[in-house]
Every structure is written in structure tokens, then in C-alpha cells.
Design a protein around this nucleic acid. Structure first.
Lengths: 179, 179
DNA sequence: AACATTTCTTTACAATTGTTATCGTCCGGG
DNA sequence: CCCGGACGATAACAATTGTAAAGAAATGTT
């Protein structure tokens, strides 16, 4: 899910079009309000995406090794991104420009197909997140996350996690305490 | 948004592949757990999609005239649908089978492109719903809905609306009373 | 090593929501 | 025309969450 594995044979042909970036923690790769012009692939480390709401940062997704990240709708529509992409840990990132990715999809229908599939999987992912919000209260969402994505719980600072779960870190503390 | 307008020139060529259905209120077009084999276009009326959670129906989207509906991920992946599609009012529906839609997309790259765009727009829609859940409390979500989609508020029974907003109908009553 | 910053926990209080139940209204079927 | 079910409003109480503040623990920096 949400993986666009660029480390297979089909992609290797285009490896020269990717630029490697070694970045420290808390580096911003895309700012909320800017137009996305790159797609990022995480070779090592983890990222979060968040937006500012009434002065507070709200984190709403995490990404790890082997996953690709972009403000997919900004990238595609040239509208300002709704969120910021930032590293949580020091990372090794492969980035590709829109122009170069376009060159690839024009050359390889197979890769275009992969990207459409990637887009589709994000649809399903957001649908599931949305359903999880509707179905469950914060405590259940936390337990669900523990079961389905323990690595997120283990690896990510707790206040980001709380934000992701839609609660305050105070409330998350209480939930953990109850269990 | 979420519109796949099948009433333009490109689609008219394939009109014979659609079947018209006149259905009363509370008719189920697709059952949760079944595999979606049709896409529905609403000529008249409105539909909701919902799933059962611990004995209760949870409504999570409404559709009106001019919109297309399917369990898009079930349709595409042949997995059981996560939700039921049901009419709220008496409706006139045009439905098309997967087989026939396949025939169309194989013939018309333009329509394939439209469907990919439709899929993409649903991605953005779910993302926005998800963000709305994160950002706003139920009262704000209600006000946001009033502003952005007043027709939903006016046209849909209140307990479906409450379910959609992620609250009980009791709580929605209170919110309306406060305003 | 010492200091500053960030992160996490805890407490007390206020506000919101859920639950359960009752009651009134509306609408459609018999 | 009456009756039953669906729908919406309201009340009382319990449970959960948010807010604000303070302090402890962990982390990073110089």
C-alpha cells in the first residue's frame, strides 16, 4: 500500500533522473501552499506530512523506507499543496522532478500504469482512514494503529501520533495510561 | 467533483449499453460484502452509501443527480464492497455492467482518461473529508457542510446526516439548537 | 558537563458528546 | 380513517475529551 517501488528493473533504466539528497531531521521538502514539483522516494528514514490549522501543526500521515511521497494532487493539478512534507529522522531521499517523471511516463506505459495504480491505492488508503475516523473513537483508533502499524507507534514522536489520531497528546497519555 | 457526466457527445455513442432502472426509496443497489459489478449514474433522485458497524448503519456519503456511484475499489479489485449503496428517494438510475464499461474504455481512450480523472477526484474528495475530520469538531463540520453543500443538509434525513458528521442524531439536534 | 529545548505526563476544571429514555409529529399502509 | 413505524426534539446522567499549567524526563547544543 502506498508503495511505488522504484527499485525494480523497469525503474532502474531511469535511475540517472533521480537526485539523491541526504537530509537531517526536520528538513522541509515541500511547504504548504507551494506547488509540488517533485516526487520523493524514501531510501532511508521517515517523513510526515502536516498542515497548519489555527496555529497548530496537524500531522496526518507518516511515510517510511520504500515509500514514495508527494502532494499528489498539487503535483497533478498545479494547485498549492494543502500540506508540508518534512523529515522526522535524518533521511536519504531520491527525488525526481515533474519534468523528468513526465519523460519517464511518456517512455514507459508500464510505469504510467504503476503510477495510476499508486494513485488508486492512495484513494483506497484515504477512504480507509476516513472510515476509521467514522467508526472508531480515539482509543479504538489507537489500538487499531497498534495492531496494523505498530512501527508507526514505535518510531514516531508521541505528539505527532496524537495529532494523527485526532486527539491531543494529553488525551493520548491518558489512553495509554488506561491500557 | 465526483461527477462522471455520461450525458455528453462522447458517451452518447454508448447509450445503448446502459440500462435504465426506476427504483423506489430504500432500494439497495449493492450490498456490503458483495462484489461490485455495475456503475450507477443518477438521472434523478439521491443515494447514500453506508456500512454496518456494531449493528448500526453508518452513512458516509450522499450522491445526487448527475453523479456516478460505485464501490470503486470493489469494482476494480474484485474484493467485497465495504459498503452498501441504497436509494434515499425514488430514483431513475442508468446502470452499466463492468463488462460493457470495459468495452467502452477499450474503444475510447478519451473515456478511459475521464474515468482515471474521476478516480483521481475521488482521491482528493476522500482526502478532504479526512482533513475535515481532523481539523474540525462536529459543530464546525456541520457549519462547513451547511456552507459547502447546503443541498445535503436540506434534502437528507437528519439521522443520516448525523451519521455522516460522525455524531449521534441527539448531538446534531443539540448543535442545531445552539445555533 | 552544563544548559536550553523539546517531549511527555499529570492534574483540575470546563465543555462536548454518548447513552438511554420519553414524548410529539409526520407519513403511509391497511 | 386510524394505526404503526420512522423521525426528530429534549432531558438526565455518565464518560470522554479539550484546555491550561506545572513539572519531570529526554534530547540536543555549545
Amino acid at each position: 500500500m502506498n508503495s511505488l517501488n522504484i527499485e525494480n528493473a523497469e525503474w532502474k533504466k531511469f535511475k540517472h533522473l533521480f537526485k539523491q539528497q541526504d537530509i537531517p531531521a526536520k528538513t522541509i521538502l515541500l511547504n504548504e501552499g507551494d506547488i509540488a514539483k517533485h516526487v520523493f522516494y524514501i531510501k532511508k528514514g521517515c517523513l510526515r506530512i502536516y498542515f497548519n490549522h489555527e496555529g497548530k501543526d496537524i500531522t496526518f500521515q507518516f511515510f517510511f523506507e520504500g515509500e514514495s511521497v508527494s502532494s499528489i494532487e498539487s503535483f497533478r493539478t498545479n494547485q498549492p499543496s494543502l500540506f508540508t512534507i518534512e523529515s522526522i529522522e535524518p533521511c536519504v531521499i531520491y527525488s525526481i522532478s515533474k519534468r523528468n517523471l513526465q519523460a519517464i511516463t511518456d517512455t514507459s506505459p508500464k510505469i504510467k500504469e504503476q503510477i495510476d495504480q499508486f494513485t488508486f491505492e492512495r484513494l483506497v488508503y484515504y477512504q480507509k482512514l476516513f472510515l476509521s475516523r467514522i467508526k472508531n473513537n480515539p482509543e479504538k483508533r489507537y489500538l487499531e494503529l497498534l495492531e496494523n502499524n505498530p512501527k508507526i507507534v514505535l518510531r514516531v514522536p508521541q505528539h505527532y501520533l496524537a495529532s494523527f489520531l485526532g486527539i491531543t497528546s494529553v488525551s493520548l497519555s491518558r489512553i495509554r495510561n488506561r491500557l
